[in-house]
Design a binder for these strands. Sequence first.
DNA 1: CGTACTATTGACGCAGATCAAGTTCCGTGG
DNA 2: CCACGGAACTTGATCTGCGTCAATAGTACG
Lengths: 262, 262
Amino acid sequence: MAMETPLHRKLTSAIELTEADVTALEGLLSNRVSLQAGTMLISDGQADGDAYVLLAGWAYRFRVFEDGRRQISRLFLPGDFIGLNASLLGMPEQAIAALTDVQLAKVDAPIFFRRILQSSGLWLAFLWSDTRDRFITEERVASIGRRSAYERLAHTFLELYLRLELVGQATADAFTLPLTQEHLADLLGLTSIHVNRMLHRLKDDGLIAVETRTIRLLSRERFMKIADFDPKYLVHRRLLPPDLLESRRIRHFADAFRLKDD
Amino acid sequence: MAMETPLHRKLTSAIELTEADVTALEGLLSNRVSLQAGTMLISDGQADGDAYVLLAGWAYRFRVFEDGRRQISRLFLPGDFIGLNASLLGMPEQAIAALTDVQLAKVDAPIFFRRILQSSGLWLAFLWSDTRDRFITEERVASIGRRSAYERLAHTFLELYLRLELVGQATADAFTLPLTQEHLADLLGLTSIHVNRMLHRLKDDGLIAVETRTIRLLSRERFMKIADFDPKYLVHRRLLPPDLLESRRIRHFADAFRLKDD
DNA sequence: CGTACTATTGACGCAGATCAAGTTCCGTGG
DNA sequence: CCACGGAACTTGATCTGCGTCAATAGTACG
């Protein structure tokens, strides 16, 4: 009976959730909001920002410099959490904007965490998601720091494909890409002009086919090779296979959630 | 009676901790380990890695590509948590190595989290630290993506200074920098040769003085200007001033930690 | 059908990489 | 206390990936 929302697919891909968990989670997402492309979800430096779960559409976090240079530090895809930690703690977030029209669940961070902390499954799933997001950002550092423009594009396309596939937003070999070439440039630390050239090179090399707003990956193997892609950082695997429930680690897990005082 | 360790200074800078919190924290750090510079703390892709608190010395997380290119994605300074989330969840970490001789507290992640979750103060402090680390990484993305080599160096020096100052590891205007120029290059996405040239330019411009392994910042203002430095992302301020305890947000905080079932 | 993004293409310039020598620093052992 | 060997640092010459500048062409929507 659990609906196959992106969030649900994402979390249960890694952590097994009970019926009660899923119900609780859905209950936390009842405050639905729709916003138009371009709307700011959180403005730069705002310390009392809202928190959201992104249900549909894309958003991005970015930093603008005084002279107008812009860097996108992170993309939010369907099923991603937005600003939970910062909202709970009153920490100043970087700016976040809707890239497409988006559907969000606006979340009250304290209530969200209180509920999450009552279930080891939900809490672990959130922690997993948060940590995976950090892995993704760290891989982006590696990408921008050491990969060529061509490699960066290839890497990002494959990453986006895999992330979208996990949440049911990709076909067997293609996905919708709502980013303009300028967005891609700001994401990859390049110029839109150079992105344009490398995009054409990917086409000429027979790696991608571009229809309107959609990217088709023609050879996953060649992408992996070109970008030196190591999928481990996306952690697309179940973390706690049932047959390991008796191991030392897992017993500790159980211990960890006796939440009352000793 | 609380000792002024880097970790203690760091956490209490943001979150007020009780005596009991501090005692509990110290109890979690009893398993001391010393390692030599160059030792691997966690090897690439290891999913059952240990977790640590860095008590003294520096460490770094990095990614090596097949052709030998290397990118440092993160620096760990005294008082930083290393690998807690990944260790708890069994997620595969990027490689982490000791940059200098280090003193660590080896931590059992499940026990650590169980204890942390019993105190709203400790848990919030950990969450704050974790979130701040993410902010730092996101600012690095902006840096590598959009700042020039000269600006990147300036930005990193100021960031390191401020992070070290917070944990009592800097003087009024200087800090010890154990990184070689090659490390700096791998951190900033540059070549050691170019780092060398920009370092000399910073000296010639009267911005830094370099003694053996120490960097003296000669004008904080000029650094801020050059790097378009916005210190907000480091969140160096107390998050919950006592006089706000009656506000709406804080009442929610209190609510958030009634950890027993409703 | 015009106004405003978005994409495309070419000519040219430059920040930073690469290549190639040195040189200085520093720990170790004789 | 010196000598030797390997990092780490320095400096210059040259090259190149990507940026900048400039102009044109789609495309989308009101």
